[in-house]
Nucleic acid binder design. Sequence first.
DNA 1: AGTATAACCTGTCTGC
DNA 2: TGCAGACAGGTTATAC
Length: 271
Amino acid sequence: MPELPEVETIRSQVAAHLAGSKLAAIEVKRASIIKGEITSLKGKTIKVVRRYGKLMVVDFSKGLSLAIHLKMTGRLTLLKDEMELPIHTHVIFTFKQGDETKRVAFSDTRRFGFLHVLPTHEVGELKFIRSLGKEPFKDLDLAAFVEMVRGATRPIKNLLLDQSRIAGIGNIYACEALWLAGIKPTKRADKLTKKEVKLLFGAVESVLKEGIARGGASDNDYRNLLGEKGEYQNFFKVYGRTGKPCLHCETPLKRIVQAGRSTFYCPTCQS
DNA sequence: AGTATAACCTGTCTGC
DNA sequence: TGCAGACAGGTTATAC
């Protein structure tokens, strides 16, 4: 479920609530979602929480790290006292900071997500990270974006979703950015005009920024570390709005399928 | 280099 | 009420 803004929201919350906390206990209910030796994290303290595209990396003391991918339905939940465990909880972490005890559950209905324990110095060697493309707001600048678009013959929507080119964009933000830029999702990437490329670059940054500002999009499953929904779903212009009027021109929005994923767009504004 | 499809899983919704 | 089918924020392997 979570795309860059959702993962970034959780990343900053994990940093705010758990940095400096010591992992006192780990309860594993389903080992198959774990790679590496999770018990080695016991007694270690959280130092830094990073994000690579949609992957979160928690750096612990003693040179150990925990990579977390939430995929579609993964959640990290800071458990309140007496709180029932989320459904499909696979791992429960108990942290101590001074007198305080904090419990965090990793749950994942569809079990696509994973936890991966590895030495911090090996994080950069992860195949997932090595194959990631440029990161919005970091090394993805307009020049890099122009270059990328110029060299691609596939539809622009498919390019936006390709994590090996741009890290972090998923189906929601791809659709929203294309609507904002007024570009048809099926248009061949290298056929975009200079003006369109520039508009799209701005639109991508704009929707990601707004997604982060609104705490992510909870169209369905997504919840932040505190179990709260995001707000960005209330501001979708096209995603999931098949048949509803375009907010610009009132044309009924269309749904098509590209690369096996739903694309929502306005046939009038995006041509 | 690109596409398309299936696969990994469970849950929810729609239509008959 | 039941049941089949479509669909869901992601990634990857495999076959064209």
